[in-house]
Amino acid sequence: MNILHYWRAMWGIIGRELWRFVRQRERFISALVRPLVWLFIFAAGFRAALGLAISPPYETYILYEVYITPGLMGMIQLFNGMQSSLSMVYDREMGSMRILMVCPLPRWFLLVSKLVAGVSVSIVQVYVFLTIAWFYDIEPPLVGYFWVFPALILSGLMLGALGLLLSSFIKQLENFAGVMNFVIFPMFFMSTALYPLWKMKESSELLHSLAFYNPFSQAVELIRFALYGQFNEYAFIYTFCAFSFFMIAAVIGYNPSKGMMMKKGGK
């Protein structure tokens, strides 16, 4: 009986999120246009400027577009995670978060459901992106499309948990611009999404280590290897640990007696 309650609630939350996503056509299109602009314009322009040596998981010389694709998949998930976090802050201000929080289920479960719902949306986006990219001659092996699925679940969970954690700290919607400047951009640019690590090492040792320890880099590497049917163990463990850390912190952040509400000064 009890398990049925959890099951129904989780599907309720995921269903609502997917339905809302389909309904908000502008959100769907903008979520797709962003990585496509990077792929069609930025990558095309950079192709000439950047020479890429053969490095795993690639077995031949590759075009810059091919290199950047897993990074853009990660980007979709990064923005999606932050967007869910934004919508949580918005929901909290508008009250619908409170409807969720007063339902008779443990709070960690509600947060995990919300997270899984966000990840489902991001995975739909990534596969649509991959389909368009395929027509643009970015053709990873078929088995990659299968293996990248579990990788996307983990990377999506990690980035979503980061979003949740941030949403528990952001008190107001206006502060979200700060998240863009101080979280999304640094995470994206200081990662292996746009340039390989060894290339960064040539220009700056510091940048190299920052990128190496950036969880977003590891999520991108996990996706990159999975897309070519390979398993990157280090990236997997790193992403998983980052996910656990962010998730636990987020659950604490949403705990009514310990978290954000108390930080507002309540006693």
């Binding site: 049925l4 309650h5 959890y6 129904r8 609630a9 599907w11 309720g12 939350i13 269903g15 609502r16 339905w19 809302r20 309904r23 908000q24 508008m94 009250g95 619908s96 409170r98 409807i99 969720l100 339902c103 008779p104 289920l105």
Partner: peptide
Amino acid sequence: FQQTTLDLDLTVMQNLRYHTALQG
């Protein structure tokens, strides 16, 4: 709650269904 907590883009039925799901 004081502020409305319904999803404006969903139908009345969908909003209520969401709630019944949360209640199991």
